[in-house]
Design a protein around this nucleic acid. Structure first.
Lengths: 219, 219
DNA sequence: TTAAAATGTAAACATTGTCAACATAAAGTT
DNA sequence: AACTTTATGTTGACAATGTTTACATTTTAA
């Protein structure tokens, strides 16, 4: 492929790269097509050869964003060999780290405006590409092995997700000055979640210091 | 005051009323100045005699919105004569009702875009006009009376708020189809919060059926 | 009565997303 | 090699939007 002044060569990927670079520092609502055309040295309407609209570009970003998000959550939950409690703890911590380090993307993924993408996109709904499904599976694993209470796993997943999403949102949306104390808050939250989810009939296996300290499962 | 065709008479209040009517049904991002001028029968720039910018109008809406929000939360928490647990339960339920019935306003109040209003506005930070402060006071009341664990009340408040805010957001942002089961989820969530917050040295006073059922405080 | 302040309008501006008509390059066909 | 088709980019226009400036009218106060 010969590069020349007229045809760019890899414009679609460039648009996406620049758009992701942009939301690394600014909210997606401030991203304009002019910013993209200026950065690529193309005209303002060039993007319409690759995306049917600005929203279509953002939809693509959301689908890619969920894949990236999933790499923060799911692999940690599925690390075979490690205790379930530890996997959940690390995954939740990673969830918050993703939100903090990609706050504009996080809002894009979980906000209202593009909720229909979450509904319609197959790749997002796919079991293998959703942090939510991974967490639900982990909970069901714990219920089968007797560590966690037998209850509706969907309900329990929603409740845990609510806490994480709520804390993440309060932090990144500047609700209060809780950024500095967030690791402490997360540990506290994890203990609460754990206490609400475990059965007291088994001994918990975990390498996390406060798990054995705080929780006192009988036998 | 004589009404005439030129001077409207009460234009500022009208703009606000129409704007609130609008976000009762649509997101604030779709509110345009043309909508406001058409609805009032004025020119598109008339609004600039009453608000320095569109954002200034929205800031006013946020301040009014927080007052409205507070009426959902604080009075219930401060109903003297009722058990603390009951007051917290009802207030949390009312919190979620507010979010569900005013979802565009809720997003406006707790979203990122106008976070600086929350920071700068005295009336919002005021102890008497913030649901957050009311909850924190309730928690401290419970700690003093021995019902709740002695712990950092700010941290505990944040954690409870996280859960509520998270659940509210998941519901109204269309994250999943949990709207129908939300009363069930809220009761479950309240039990979890309660279990994480109470000390087991006192008997709980409450008229909520599941409180005595689920929690078994010793003596 | 008159000057000042408040409140409205009209016209223009730059920015935005979008589209139609046109231009150029690449790939495929004969 | 010549021609056609497809892909990709440009130019110029459009309406909608928030905003500003200059001007008009009404109310208020001295």
């Amino acid at each position: 492929m010969i590069k020349n002044d007229y045809h760019h060569g890899n414009l679609k990927e460039e648009f996406l790269r620049i758009a992701f670079d942009f939301i690394a520092k600014d909210d997606v609502e401030n991203l304009t097509l002019k910013i993209l055309s200026d950065a690529t040295g193309t005209s303002r309407s060039a993007i319409y050869r690759h995306f049917s609209s600005k929203d279509a570009l953002i939809e693509t970003m959301i689908i890619k964003g969920f894949k990236e998000f999933d790499t923060y959550i799911s692999p940690l939950l599925r690390e075979t060999g490690k205790p379930l409690i530890d996997r959940c703890y690390m995954s939740g911590k990673s969830y918050l780290e993703f939100a903090k380090q990609n706050e504009n993307l996080y809002r894009l993924l979980f906000g209202k405006k593009y909720a229909h993408i979450r509904e319609n996109s197959l790749s997002i709904k796919d079991e293998n590409c959703s942090g939510f499904s991974s967490l639900k599976l982990a909970i069901e694993e714990g219920q089968k092995s007797g560590i966690l209470k037998k209850e509706d796993s969907f309900h329990r997943t929603i409740l845990i997700w609510s806490s994480l999403h709520g804390l993440a949102s309060l932090i990144i949306d500047g609700f209060m000055d809780i950024d500095k104390i967030y690791p402490e808050l997360y540990d506290k939250m994890f203990q609460d979640i754990l206490a609400s989810s475990i059965t007291n009939k088994v001994k918990l296996l975990s390498s996390i210091p406060f798990v054995e300290k705080i929780l006192k499962p009988t036998v």
